[in-house]
Design a protein around this nucleic acid. Structure first.
Length: 423
RNA sequence: GUGGCCGUAGCUCAGUCCGGUUAGAGCGCCAGGUUGUGGCCCUGGAGGUCGGGGGUUCAAGUCCCCUCGGUCACCCCA
């Protein structure tokens, strides 16, 4: 293409700007607080990993088969941008071998090369936790409840929690055989697009949205009928625990989720407020074989990921968790050249008062206009008269009342006007 | 990867079907009305290669082809 360069954020990516970014930041802060209260510490992983880290996690999944951002660095290493959050955390666990249970949370971007649509992006952001090293069903309960309570705490009400168990590997192997046999017998009734999945990935057929397929899978064998006694025991204890905490859930035997590594508990939280096709706000499950697959000792684990963009979309749809105005307390106006504004804003900020000012030595009118637009509660005005008498005019921008105060009393007067405690 | 719809000022859009002088509106921005005072009002101004390229034509924002981008959906997922 000719002409001057005209750059845009790459397809499927977005800039998050004020004031929306304020909401973004506060969402993460809330999650950090919730996870912190539950004993989870922050983990920060690299945004790219050896491509094998992700391959080991799901050879057969679309995520690794066709959606990974893979590249070779200048040293010839094969790397990939993280398509999901669990694998890097598990890799870090295997590398550092922290004491268990290891409970961590993260807020990180995920990258998948796919066509964007409402609620789906090439770079999206996830909030998540991982609890590695305990097979206790109470860990499942804690993790699921954390996700549920976090979303409820934002004011989201039109959410449903879907719960299923994939069982242990023996349960699962037996079930897959049974399901495959069933689907082969009914193959002709399936939607054409789903027929080819029957042989290689029969469980993928279960989450098809096509009506013809769903009619068949309604009658398909259920994994709950194939669970070993111990897997059934684990799952019942999870359900009992959730009920005990008042977390409502619906059993969904067809919930298999996209990643191959899940065992036992899997769950997904959907929003019925989103009319978009992508209505899963988050999901996760247990992955008792994953640590071993990445070279560690046999170690159980469970976690979830919540999509920040989708949660915010759901909040929009339910008109909750709205953008808070990031207002400053005071606006400093200086028509004597700017030195007074420089000193005053600095002094106020040092004293803990949020203060801002205009630049470029603009007219009184222009500076007042900026002050009004900023949403500040008070304006501090320094003109020739104030400068000459070591005073400042303090104006309440809501009531338009103003009075002249001594320059030396500015911090105290502003604090009083804002009803703010000294720091 | 496949399909539908859409690309005109910073934003939201009119104008495109039936081609015709300097491409418009609202909002926002800047300035003035008020030589020290915001929000309301009035006046004025800046800002556009009509996504890009090619073609048809005396003439293209408008018609044709290609291309890029956006959006929604499928596959699948957060």
């Amino acid at each position: 293409m000719a002409g001057p360069p005209s750059y845009k954020a790459p397809t499927g990516t977005h800039d998050v700007l004020p004031p929306q970014s304020g909401r973004w930041a506060s969402l993460i802060a809330r999650f950090a607080a919730a996870a912190g209260r539950a004993g989870y510490g922050l983990v920060v992983n690299p945004v790219f990993e050896d491509v094998e880290v992700f391959r080991r996690v799901g050879e057969g999944t679309d995520i690794v088969r066709k959606e990974m951002y893979e590249f070779e660095d200048k040293g010839g290493r094969r790397l990939a941008l993280r398509p999901e959050g669990t694998a890097p955390v598990v890799r870090a666990f295997v590398q550092h071998r922290p004491p268990v249970p290891w409970k961590v949370w993260y807020a990180a971007p995920g990258f998948r090369y796919e066509r964007p649509q409402a609620g789906r992006y090439r770079q999206h952001h996830q909030l998540g936790v991982e609890a590695i090293g305990s097979a206790d069903p109470d860990v499942d309960v804690e993790v699921v409840a954390l996700a549920w309570r976090f979303l409820a705490g934002l004011g989201l009400q039109r959410t449903i929690l879907l719960l299923n168990s994939m069982g242990d590997p023996e349960s699962r192997a037996a079930y897959v055989e049974d399901l495959r046999a069933f689907l082969r017998g009914r193959r002709a009734e399936l939607a054409p697009e789903d027929r080819e999945k029957v042989d290689d990935h029969p469980m993928r057929v279960l989450d098809s949205k096509r009506a013809a397929t769903r009619a068949v899978t309604r009658e398909a064998p259920r994994i709950s009928d194939h669970l070993t006694p111990s897997a059934t025991g684990h799952f019942s204890r999870v359900q009992a625990g959730l009920s005990d905490l008042g977390v409502p859930f619906a059993l969904e035997p067809r919930l298999v989720r996209g990643l191959d590594y899940y065992t036992h508990t899997t769950f997904e939280i959907q929003s019925s407020a989103l009319d978009a096709a992508q209505n899963a706000l988050g999901g996760g499950g247990r992955y008792d074989g994953l640590v071993e697959a990445l070279g560690g000792p046999p170690t159980p684990g469970i976690g979830f990921g919540i999509g920040i963009e989708r949660v915010l979309l759901a909040c929009d749809a339910e008109a909750t968790f709205t953008v808070g105005d990031a207002r400053v307390d005071a606006w400093v106006i200086d028509v004597t050249g700017g030195a007074a504004a420089r000193a005053l804003t600095h002094e106020l900020r040092e004293a803990g008062v949020a203060a801002d000012r205009g630049f470029d030595d603009r007219s009184m009118k222009a500076q007042m206009k900026a002050a009004g637009r900023s949403g500040a509660r008070v304006a501090l005005i320094v003109g020739e008269q104030e400068a000459a008498s070591s005073t400042v005019t303090l104006r309440d921008l809501a009531t338009s009342e103003q009075r002249t105060i001594a320059r030396a009393d500015v911090v105290a007067e502003v604090r009083a006007a804002l009803d703010k405690e000294p720091r």
